[in-house]
């Protein structure tokens, strides 16, 4: 029953707050309710009123009404803290699976000051604090990631309890933009042994490897650089050189090199390798089914490789899909299967 209500409520909110990277808080999408201390305060006011009635004490009546009116005034103030505030998702961060990925958000206050504002996603919350009228403040909200791929929190909650903490006004932002989460690096077994053997194994492989270029017919997704254009000119057949051997060379990090391992594990191995190579600054290329990144070096190249590893086989979440993506929370509740495992 409560689940039904909750899902209804969820749908109602999702209709009310469409996905967007920019959220202007207005009466349409701001919610306000008393907090637990606020409810107790209400009970206290009731007790005070009964005291006033019993002792026929006008001043107790007066102070009860005064505090009741202050409560209503606080409702106004609490609402105004957020009303007119514009929340923008400025930048999504990157990181390895399991880490907290930073989402940079900017809160621009409207014509009223935004006071004591907190952003939260699940358990993590970040205090923005005070944003004077007409100014803006940037804040980085860490979102816990569960696995590699695209990461998009379902809802980022923005809340204030100012002035008295008796009421809370809140709203949600449902961002479109996604962060990219790299596969968690796992030390690759192959390389562990390579390190033991030293240069010898690597050098003994590379000369013979060059001869083992296997030829196969062209298929969809192969890069044009790989097509044997000379052969095409001769025979008219699109033949692709499969650089089997080339990929065995230390310059190439190959998805197919880890036979028997799960896809995700392979990606984690590759991720570790990319990080290692990136650290040492050596040249390397990345071969993934359907995607090949030519050998290069430097941090930009490493990031590019990591990104390719992160989104391999993943589909970018569409705007219309309301489901959260890749956050730890959704995984824990088991509502959604791990997308990579299906492939």
């Amino acid at each position: 029953m409560s689940r039904l209500i909750r899902s209804r409520w969820q749908r109602w909110i999702n209709r009310r707050i469409p996905r967007s990277d920019v959220q202007l808080l207005t009466q349409r999408n701001l919610f306000i309710l008393p907090t637990a201390p606020g409810v107790v305060f209400g009970v206290l006011l009731l007790i005070m009123l009964i005291t006033g009635i019993n002792y026929q004490n006008s001043l107790i009546y007066l102070v009860t009404f005064l505090l009741g009116a202050v409560f209503v005034g606080a409702m106004h103030q609490t609402h105004r803290n957020l009303a007119g505030l514009e929340l923008t998702l400025v930048q999504t961060g990157e990181g390895f699976a399991g880490d907290d990925i930073l989402f940079r958000l900017r809160a621009a206050a409207g014509k009223d000051d935004a006071i004591a504002v907190t952003l939260s996603d699940g358990d993590t919350s970040v205090r923005i604090g005070h944003v004077p009228s007409g100014q803006s403040a940037d804040v980085a909200l860490p979102v816990g990631s569960a696995f590699r791929g695209y990461l998009r929190p379902d809802r980022i909650r923005i809340e204030t309890r100012f002035p008295f903490g008796l009421l809370k006004a809140w709203s949600w932002m449902r961002p479109i933009s996604t962060a990219v989460v790299f596969p968690r690096p796992i030390a690759a077994p192959d390389v562990v042994s390579a390190v033991d053997d030293g240069e010898q194994t690597a050098s003994s492989r590379s000369p013979e490897g060059n001869d083992h270029a296997e030829l196969r017919p062209w298929r969809d997704g192969d890069m044009s650089q790989r097509v044997m254009w000379k052969r095409f000119a001769r025979s008219g057949q699109m033949v692709v050189a499969d650089w089997e051997a080339d990929k065995r060379s230390p310059h190439w990090l190959d998805f197919n090199a880890f036979a028997g391992a799960d896809h995700e594990v392979r990606l984690s191995y590759l991720s570790w390798l990319v990080v290692e190579r990136g650290k040492s600054g050596s040249r390397f290329g990345l071969n993934l089914p359907g995607q090949v990144i030519e050998p290069d070096s430097g941090p930009a190249h490493a990031t590019r490789c990591l990104r390719a590893l992160a989104v391999w086989g993943e589909e970018k979440p569409r705007d219309a899909v309301g489901a959260p993506y890749g956050t730890r929370r959704t995984t824990d509740s088991g509502r959604r299967a791990k997308p990579g495992a299906v492939i």
Binding site: L66, A116, R127, F162, F164
Partner: peptide
Amino acid sequence: IGLLLIGLQVLNAPEL
């Protein structure tokens, strides 16, 4: 009572 309410304000927004 006013002072109490001020205290609550400070509690809820110490950076103000």
